[in-house]
């Protein structure tokens, strides 16, 4: 996998955009997912994920090819998400998906006659609750938790992505876990 990506990167450096398309195909879901969990809505997630790929393309020459491409790409995406969170004004789109749910928008929050099966509703509610609690975390804990438990990355990789010492990453994950525990203990 990494070998294919390395080959494609060489083609991209020569200016081949089709090769970059293949790279986007490989990583689009994980980058989008990362952004979605960091930001909590699909409009922003798509916007930031696209921006991350765009930045990667423009700066591809500065990518050190001895490193893992995904580490570099996740670093760009995480930084963009953190920037967005800091600038964020409280905003709501009525057609924006409700945090932590798929295909559920604010329209569907308006009571409807048809009811979802109880189990499905429960799981949707749980996902929504968990996503809400993730979004309540300060961004420095949020990024560490999302990379660890949503992207399933190792502590070492997270330390590279966030450009922080391993000890700091651990502390952030511990604090994030503790904050989530307090919020989710009665769920």
């Amino acid at each position: 996998m990494e070998a294919i990506v390395k080959k494609r990167i060489k083609q991209v450096i020569k200016g081949d955009q089709d090769a970059f398309g293949e790279i986007v195909e490989i990583y689009k879901n994980s980058v989008y997912h990362l952004c979605y969990r960091m930001l909590g809505n699909s409009h922003e997630a798509e916007d930031i994920a696209q921006e991350a790929f765009l930045r990667a393309y423009v700066n591809i020459k500065s990518f050190n090819q001895d490193l893992k491409f995904s580490t570099w790409l996740f670093r760009i995406a995480t930084n963009l998400c953190i920037d967005r969170i800091r600038k964020k004004k409280p905003d709501y789109y009525l057609d924006a998906e409700v945090a932590g749910t798929e295909g559920l928008t604010m329209y569907s929050q308006i009571p409807s006659d048809t009811e979802l099966p109880e189990k499905e509703l429960e799981s949707l509610e749980l996902q929504e609750t968990v996503q809400k609690e993730i979004l309540k975390l300060p961004e420095k804990y949020r990024s560490a938790i999302v990379l660890k438990y949503i992207e399933d990355l190792s502590l070492n990789e997270i330390s590279e992505i966030l450009d922080l010492p391993l000890g700091t990453v651990k502390t952030r994950i511990h604090r994030g876990r503790e904050a989530l525990r307090q919020q989710l203990r009665y769920v």
Binding site: V31, R37, V130, R177, L180, R181
Partner: peptide, 13 residues
């Protein structure tokens, strides 16, 4: 809480 976070469904682009 970790199990909850891990159980979050995977979003597709």
């Amino acid at each position: 809480s970790i199990a909850f976070v891990k159980s979050m469904s995977h979003m597709q682009a």
